[in-house]
Design a protein around this nucleic acid. Sequence first.
RNA 1: GGUCCCGUGGUGCAGCGGCCUAGCAUACGUCCCUGUCAAGGACGAGAUCGCCGGUUCGAAUCCGGUCGGGACCGCCA
Length: 600
Amino acid sequence: MRLQNGKPDVLRTHTCGDVRAADAGREVTLCGWVHTRRDHGDLTFIDLRDRYGITQVVATAKERAEAHAALKDVRAEWVIRVRGTVRARPEGTRNPKLPTGDVELVATSVEVLNPSKTPPFYVNEETPVDETLRWKYRYVDLRRERSRELMRLRHEVVDFIRRYFIDREFWEIETTNLIRGDPTGARDFVVPSRHYPGKFWALPQSPQQLKQILMYGGIDKYFQMARAYRDEDPRSDRVTEHTQLDVEMAFVEREDVMALIEDLYTRIIERFSTKPLMRKPWPRLTFAEAMRRFGSDKPDLRFGMELVDLGGAFPKTAFAVVRDALAKGGTVRAIVVPGKADASRKEIDGWTEVAKGRGAKGLLSFAMAGSEVRSPVAKFLSAEELSAIRSASGARDGDLVLAVADVERVAADAVGRLRQHLGETLGLVDGSKHSAVLIHEFPLVEHTPDGGWTFSHNPFSGPLTPDELRWLDSEPERARSSQYDFALDGRETAGGSIRIYQRSMQERVFKQMGITKEEAAQRFGAILDALDYGAPPTGGFAGGIERICMTLAGTENIRELQAFPKTQTGYDLLLDAPAAITQAELDELGLRVVGKPEQR
RNA sequence: GGUCCCGUGGUGCAGCGGCCUAGCAUACGUCCCUGUCAAGGACGAGAUCGCCGGUUCGAAUCCGGUCGGGACCGCCA
């Protein structure tokens, strides 16, 4: 019996998932949705569904004319309340597919709580449905088994995480969602202020500053399921509004946090995934090694096909593409695609587009055909060079070598993307295991397109060691950061760093970014001030809740993990939002809408 | 801001210049049926092919635009 505070609900005594053979003879009342109806004339069945399961309800005209008539009238998705007697099903009519399949409810009375229009799509079948309809009628969609199980997964993962941290004496603390905006990085979602016309709140892109300040307040260990907002265009694995597990700890070093990430996510995966981890303990790669071997800072280790460097195969080449790349300090990065020497022109064109999508100017291909090395650019290369390509790449007969000549960063990135693409499309990825890897020793700063410098992670990430800062004066890109990232199956799943906690160091880093003292005081005043009042060393991480659930559920669609997802243009099809507000509201906020008249 | 894919009865798909008077499955409606569980059987209703314009003797089909959804690039400290 399903009990709540020791008593049945007022409207029902059981749920549709918990009537069993032991209940035979008992009088029960169930509430739920009509899942399916099977009408045999004077004998009618319906399957009654709620979140907990499905129970078959039966009535015959002969025994219970009134209940039978009512059952004949109901339709899919009507909400009904049925009273009746649990009966063991006759021999040979049991349904092993249902947990409740040994029994049925013989209806004595049927009450229609609410009829339903014919639903816009099937609840009782797992057929694909256009997302426009799913999100518009999310309340119908959520009744479907897949949607319900994804919501259940997310709930259970969040519950697991909460217990994990509470057991370890972390405090769950909510930070405010109306904060000061900062024009760097992603576009802020902005909220007008009534008391301060012309001024605006911003929704947090993460509670980064607030969680550090909690540490400065002596909270010591904190976590939160934090909403994070970015007004940027979504992709299949990122959305404008998402939830992150946000964690911060005082008096920790890099190793403490990396060990925590590894322990937590290992437990999550072992609890919720049917697939084992490839390796325990997890492999760790420095950023430099990850880029060199995989061309990615979130490499998928479920397949090999590591990058090779062919820069040495062309010591004095006449081939302009390679010569120019090498002349500006670049290189030639390549992968060996096993057995694809016979790839069609069309396939190679497709791969070229993948590489170009990551900034490559083109894609070089070399097919190992017997003793020959065939290539569209063979005529620009000497026999020695072609042979060097074969030996330097380690390619065997029948293999295809794909290469990009460019500066290191572009070449590695393009070939890395191509590697992942080929791994997935050629079926090289071993989908029976999970690849968990920690990436660390990221660069502290990186070039901006306009020649300046910017944070490679966030403004508060500290250097790997204080000593790293010496590079800032000469070769800033050599300065390493304390940042660490967790990549699961090639997807960035969590990341964090040890924070700067000394004002002088924070100001030194700001200076590198071209942020003046005045500007820093204005934008990051609270943090900088706090550093003057006894700020301990802190570190932490943030992990995407939807991201980890995606991997656990094996879906590529992040919206399925959200109860009320938005479209690719950030529109809410269910609520029809965003929407215009009244002139009175605008006046009160001191706002005037300019530009295009209202669209609707 | 850009590139690509999709848009056909309620839903999922097919059709891709004339064989379309738009096909199939399912849902929906009426009827038959006492052991089904994706029940079965019979009959029936339901779409001017997202929208606008163009090409053509003729457009669901080709072209342009537009709207909506999706994938990707830009963007995402």
